[in-house]
Design a protein around this nucleic acid. Structure first.
Length: 477
RNA sequence: CGGGGCGUAGCUCAGCCUGGUAGAGCGCUUGCUUUGGGAGCAAGAAGCCGGAGGUUCGAAUCCUCUCGCCCCGACCA
């Protein structure tokens, strides 16, 4: 479970060739510390009953598991357990953006209205934009997105085609004053989003940027443990086919989806991808877009039936967790993001924008991965890898063994939540199932006598009695 | 933004119709007994009944206004 490896640096990995799931995955993550915790010290306010305001399942479980607290409609505070998941997702998103050649920046949440007036969106955006005035009565706004700002940054420093292509992204909180926030964390007013912006000389350059992002997205969701399907999306006034929504399949999803089952078997993590090789990048994109996949908005039954054999038809529900699209010179024109071509002409750069709803993904994962007892975290984003339960804290032998396992797991770099509280066993089991850690390691007098501990896999419910040593080997890989 | 619903203890809710000064379960605290799937008994602490006006001898309860939250629809990462 502990991954040894060299530090990760996006820039150095441009053009990096890889195959399958890397054994040496970067660790520790850049902005998230690994740690273990004793349950008795942890701020984990779990609830036995469901708060009345929560309707949708992910919302209920997230509140009950003590991950988030609602501050007001569509605005949430993240508590330690929830924040750990959020940070893990964020980190995977970051690593895959870096790997594809994008570079991280950080733009402010509060923006001046001036740029938005230039692009014409200050008036167009409507009430969804939170408008505020500073002390000098200047018009400001809490950013719902960042096209204007990034274009301005780019325009002020890039003047030549030689500086292209570029792809800049950031992971930042945004605010959209939704008429009706709902679905807990999935449709918030304040939300964490990764958005990337590509800059190219022409449409063909933009297409390459788009296709790299397309693959980065597939890899991102796959690493998180989700099956996300790229579906054709509306391109708006620009036209063309450079627009996809990424939808994860979940029974409780907002939109109905229709697709070819074959897409479910595509394994993007197993494919060799060289981001510098535009031809092979395109081949991969084509492979993932060749099958029918549409949301109900774009669904056409006749085409669906013609293209997809009956036994391969998948009809279900899904949640949109990403959207990528090309929008040409929509912002570079009005904001003056021009470069000089080899022929000495000034032209507006072609742009694309690529969003992933990071905080929405937390809810999306819960929707896609749970049972009637609680959440089932995929290993890659689990807040802790192991929940260690000492069934009988006032039994000396049990406690000695549990303490020692806790120390050994920590030493091995495994993230553990150690429940050593003097609670009834049932209460501890129920809570552990609720918060959904992938592994439960159970120590009690019964096992101590037999020289075993119980290792339970949360996802399958499978339990196994092992010697403590064997359990450790299993958990530390 | 249209339509509906709900604000009473940390959580889930009863009480409101028919006004008379605040209840239950869970959780919390203490003690004892328990202990392999949300334990038992006993004793406690805990509420400006969302807020403001009004009616009344008296308002959680009736009236008016307000604020907040949830659900359904139209719109969105």
């Amino acid at each position: 479970m502990r991954r040894k490896g060299t530090g990760f640096n996006g820039q150095e990995h441009v053009g990096y060739l890889f195959s399958g799931v890397p054994k040496a995955w970067p660790s520790p993550p850049l902005c998230h510390s690994r740690y273990s915790m004793r349950r008795s010290r942890y701020f984990l306010p779990t609830l036995k009953e469901t708060p009345a305001e929560a309707e949708i399942l992910s919302h209920r479980y997230m509140l009950r598991a003590g991950m988030v607290r609602q501050a007001s409609a569509g605005i949430y505070s993240w508590l330690p357990l929830g924040l750990r998941v959020l940070k893990k997702i964020e980190q995977i998103v970051r690593e895959e953006q870096d790997r594809s050649g994008a570079q991280e920046v950080l733009m402010p949440t509060v923006q001046s209205a001036d740029l938005w007036r230039k692009s014409g969106r200050y008036d167009d955006y409507g009430k969804e934009m939170l408008r505020i005035a500073d002390r000098h009565e200047r018009d400001m706004l809490y950013g719902p997105t960042n096209e204007e700002l990034i274009t301005d940054i780019f325009a002020s420093s890039v003047k030549s085609y030689r500086d292209l292509p570029k792809n800049l992204y950031h992971i930042q909180w945004k605010f959209r004053d939704e008429v009706r926030p709902r679905f807990g964390i999935m449709r918030c007013r304040e939300f964490l989003m990764k958005d990337a912006y590509s800059f190219d000389l022409d449409l063909e350059g933009s297409r390459i940027a788009y296709e790299k992002m397309f693959i980065a997205y597939l890899r991102t969701y796959a690493r998180i443990g989700l099956k996300a399907i790229p579906m054709k999306a509306d391109t708006g006034p620009i036209g063309g086919n450079l627009s996809h929504e990424f939808i994860i399949l979940a029974e409780t999803g907002e939109s109905e989806v229709y697709c070819d089952r074959e897409l479910l078997d595509h394994d993007v993590l197993g494919e060799d991808i060289d981001y510098e090789d535009a031809t092979s990048v395109r081949a991969v994109v084509e492979r993932h877009t060749s099958c029918y996949a549409r949301t109900d908005e774009k669904h056409e039954q006749a085409i669906y039936e013609a293209e997809v054999p009956e036994d391969r038809r998948y009809e279900g529900r899904g949640i949109e967790v990403g959207h990528i699209f090309y929008f040409g010179t929509k912002y570079s024109d009005p904001l003056g993001a021009l470069v000089v071509t080899p022929e000495g002409e000034n032209v507006a750069v072609h742009m694309g924008s690529y969003g992933i709803g990071v905080s929405r993904l937390v809810g999306g994962i819960v929707e896609a991965s749970h049972d009637d007892k609680g959440i089932i975290w995929p290993d890659a984003v689990a807040p802790f890898a192991v929940g260690l339960i000492n069934i009988r804290p006032n039994d000396t032998a049990s406690t000695a063994l549990a303490d020692s396992l806790y120390t050994q797991l920590q030493t091995a770099g495994v993230e553990v939540l150690y429940d050593e509280r003097d609670e009834s066993p049932g209460a501890k089991f129920a809570e552990m199932d609720l918060i959904g850690l992938p592994w439960q390691l159970v120590v009690g007098p019964r096992g101590v006598k037999a020289g075993t501990v119980e290792l339970k896999r949360r996802a399958s419910g499978e339990r196994e009695d092992l010697s403590p040593k064997a359990a450790l080997v299993r958990l530390t890989g």
